[in-house]
């Protein structure tokens, strides 16, 4: 009984996270200005990281956790680089 419950709730949370990724992707594609697109990308990688964590719960495989950690690290660096680029026009001064 409880395993049926947890399988369906994992599936439901994956669907909800996919919808959230779709919203962020919409803002990244349609964003009227550059900062809107960067904000959409920021939300997109955080949602993708959460989706990887739910895949890890579903398959009981710890490799998904490491992928999520790498996405968190590199996404932060990329968002900072984009924001610096918007402000200065160059990344490394």
């Amino acid at each position: 009984m409880s395993e049926l419950f947890i399988i369906w709730s994992i599936l439901a949370s994956q669907i909800l996270l996919s919808l959230a990724m779709g919203c962020a992707l919409f803002r990244m594609v349609r964003g009227p200005r550059a900062q809107d697109r960067i904000l959409g990308l920021d939300a997109l990688y955080i949602n993708a990281m959460l989706l990887l964590l739910t895949f890890g719960i579903r398959t009981a495989n710890t490799i998904y956790f490491e992928a999520a950690l790498i996405i968190a690290l590199l996404g932060f660096v990329s968002s900072i680089a984009f924001a610096k680029f918007l402000m200065r026009g160059e990344v490394i001064e």
Partner: peptide, 19 residues
């Protein structure tokens, strides 16, 4: 685990709908 997963993904969806 079920409650935490559903709450977390629901809150994330609300935040992304705000975008």
């Amino acid at each position: 685990v079920c409650i935490l997963l559903l709450l977390g993904s629901g809150i994330t969806l609300i935040g992304s709908l705000g975008l």
